[in-house]
């Protein structure tokens, strides 16, 4: 049950329960900041923004990304390719603007 909660949401992998937790945390801190601030505008907005940011930092600290690094499988990078013009310098400069 606990392990089967990974899912692809908005182009990346998340844990559904983690997502729920982090949504609740971020939104409630942000809204609490906005609604409970006794000061005049624009302070509620400022505090709300800071609240959202605190929620973001807390979420980032508490919830780890669901990404793993696997060994890079591309061809090895040879030293003489590190320069830059080499791929272009061989170009014969033919008309390409049609």
């Amino acid at each position: 049950m606990k392990k089967a909660s990974l899912a692809e949401v908005w182009e990346d992998t998340v844990d559904v329960w983690d997502l729920l937790k982090s949504l609740l945390m971020c939104t409630s801190i942000c809204m609490a900041g906005y609604i409970l601030t006794p000061l005049d505008p624009p302070f509620p907005l400022v505090i709300g923004l800071i609240g959202a940011l605190i929620g973001f930092v807390l979420s980032a600290l508490l919830i780890k990304p669901k990404r793993v690094f696997v060994e890079w499988k591309g061809e090895s990078v040879s030293a003489n390719e590190t320069g830059s013009n080499e791929t272009g310098s061989k170009e014969t400069g033919r008309g390409d603007k049609q």
């Binding site: 908005w10 998340v14 997502l19 982090s22 949504l23 971020c26 809204m31 959202a52 940011l53 990404r67």
Partner: peptide, 27 residues
């Protein structure tokens, strides 16, 4: 890239924008 991939979870990022939208819509 490594820093971002390792330390900034997608959950946190989605939540940040979700919270901002909820607050601004409420306002």
């Amino acid at each position: 890239s490594e820093f971002v991939f390792k330390h900034i979870s997608h959950e946190a990022l989605m939540s940040l924008f979700f919270a901002l939208v909820v607050m601004l819509a409420y306002r």
